[in-house]
Nucleic acid binder design. Structure first.
Length: 501
RNA sequence: GGCCCCAUCGUCUAGUCUGGCCCAGGACACCGGGUUUUCAUCCCGGCAACAGGGGUUCGAAUCCCCUUGGGGUCACCA
């Protein structure tokens, strides 16, 4: 029932030479959303013609990253499709046939110029402040001459013969961009070793895979006229283009590792929820209106449009990711988060695998307490550690609270005695009542009582509400840590030793 | 350097195509206040932008030109 000639087909075409970075992920996302919105097909193609730099590990990392984000592709590696193969390295014969066709039609020609001559030429042109262009010396070689040199085994590359006039890119985002053909040199389509070059491979693939819309980074804009010329010479339909502005790192510089994590994998490892990442990515360069900031995947599919993409480059801002991370942590159910955090606790060696099931209710309670204060899953692991092992270190502010009034050590021991009787893991409020009573009896403020207590229990100066923490920590650990308070205070330089250092 | 793209709060952006509703709206960050034993959440409030200069017009963030600034690209890499 679907007319295949009108079905939207888009592609994301990474080269597996490194991880999936933020910019690539955003491009993939826009392609994915456009395809879903249009009821089209999202193709994943691996551009691995650079055998030197391509690795299977990098490709796997890219696939993992896309799966983490839920950007499932309809055709491509591991899922197949009827426009395969989906690896450029497996499509080389096709490219050679295309080059032969170009040669035959006269759209391309053999160039026998040596690299030395080309280097020389480049040097001269640069010295004369001229445009650096191949001078087309081999363009008008006679057929006999060419045949003879081929016969003789002279090495040659194949160049595309660029014609007069101008080439127009009608870009969905940038509008009408005109390039004078004078600016385009007779570019190489096939190397001396017979392998073909990127621009030809892309055109061959986009055409072979019947790609209708090419949504990619603006760094490809100047490649586009060359590709259009190639499509025409090949008699293939030219796809519609949409070039999105690049993402910059802080300081407007090109995105690089210097700007902190730019690899999607790193955020995945830190345990940012995919929905947070999706929102972070999509809003960098796209907006729906002047109100909505948060979008579910379904809403994105429904509301996404190329019209909403801005023409100017965005700088990525980690504060926003953090905010979204926390937002989505609060949106998820405690049960979900526990499912997600459990394996991380096991991996961190805090929780025996078995206990992930047997102590499920307990885990959920601690996750519930951290949920609104963290941005990602690994922060949960970090902040929940004290439930599993007694603190051995006390962060500076915590240590300070303990040193402030060393007498509080006794108060904490006294509180342990109270709790011995009244420990109630279902009633933090009741325990808090006891603490208030003690605070009054000893004329010590709640703050001066609670902060040291928190420090001794958690090793930190901040935590979820103290008595909730105690309820989850359990009687045994609470008693032990409270009773060790005087000792700990002493070891931190408080008490008898005076206020040295 | 040639060619190409871009230009609204610190950041992401709405508004630009279809001039007036904009002495420019939202969000993040930041600052102040409330709640509170801490942190976080939450709630109130605040700071903060049309790069500059010329036009066109009754009227310009919006249209045109120039300048400046930023970015991309110029490979037998992708």
């Amino acid at each position: 029932m679907t007319d295949s000639s009108s079905t939207v087909r888009v592609r994301f075409a990474p080269s597996p030479t490194g991880y999936l970075h933020i910019g690539g992920a955003r491009t993939a996302l826009y392609n994915y959303l456009f395809a879903r919105k249009q009821g089209g097909v999202f193709v994943l193609r691996i551009e691995d013609t650079d055998r030197e730099r391509s690795t299977p590990a990098a490709m796997q990392a890219i696939l993992d990253g896309m799966r983490y984000l839920g950007l499932d592709w309809d055709e491509g590696p591991e899922v197949g499709g009827d426009h395969g193969p989906y690896f450029q390295s497996e499509r080389v014969e096709g490219y050679r046939a295309l080059v032969d066709g170009l040669l035959e039609s006269g759209a391309a020609y053999r160039c026998f110029c040596s690299r030395e001559r080309l280097d020389e030429l480049r040097k001269e042109q640069m010295a004369a402040k001229q445009r650096v262009h191949y001078d087309r010396r081999c363009r008008d070689l006679g057929a006999d001459d060419v045949a003879a040199r081929v016969e003789r085994g002279d090495p040659f590359v194949v160049r595309f013969a660029v014609g007069e006039g101008e080439t127009v890119v009608d870009d969905l985002i940038r509008g009408r961009v005109v390039f004078s053909n004078d600016e385009i040199e007779d570019f190489i389509v096939q190397r001396a070793d017979g392998t073909c070059v990127y621009n030809l491979a892309v055109v061959g693939d986009d055409s072979g895979m019947e790609i209708t819309h090419v949504i990619r980074g603006e760094d490809h804009l100047t490649n586009t006229p060359k590709q259009i010329l190639l499509f025409r010479a090949l008699g293939a339909p030219v796809p519609t283009y949409a070039h999105i502005a690049l993402i910059h790192g802080p300081g407007r510089q090109k995105l690089s590792k210097r700007h902190g994590a730019v690899s999607v994998t790193e955020y995945q490892e830190q345990g940012y929820l995919p929905e947070a990442m999706l929102n972070f990515l999509v809003r960098m360069g796209w907006s729906y209106d002047d109100r909505q900031e948060i979008f579910s995947r379904e809403e994105l599919v429904e509301k996404f449009s190329l019209d909403g993409i801005s023409r100017s480059p965005a700088m990525y801002d980690l504060d926003r990711l953090k905010h979204l991370g926390n937002y989505y942590m609060r949106q998820r159910s405690v049960a979900d988060l526990t499912d997600l955090a459990g394996p991380r606790l096991v991996a961190a060696g805090l929780l025996p695998e078995e206990a992930a099931r047997t102590r499920r209710a307990w885990l959920e309670r601690m996750v519930a307490l951290e949920q609104e204060r963290v941005e990602n899953l690994s922060q949960i692991v970090d902040r929940v550690r004290f439930y599993f092992e007694d603190p051995t270190e006390y962060e500076p502010k915590a240590a300070k609270a303990l040193r402030k009034k060393p007498e509080v050590g006794e108060a904490l021991v006294a509180f342990a005695d109270v709790l011995e009787e009244k420990f109630d893991e279902n009633g933090p409020a009741a325990m808090e009542e006891e603490a208030r009573r003690l605070s009054e009896a000893r004329t010590i403020s709640m703050k001066d009582l609670c902060q040291p207590m928190r420090a001794v229990l958690t090793g930190r100066s901040f935590s979820p509400p103290l008595f909730d923490v105690i309820a989850v920590l359990g009687r045994e650990a609470t008693m032990r840590r409270l009773r060790a308070a005087p000792e700990i205070i002493k070891s931190l330089g408080g008490g008898a030793g005076g206020k040295s250092s």
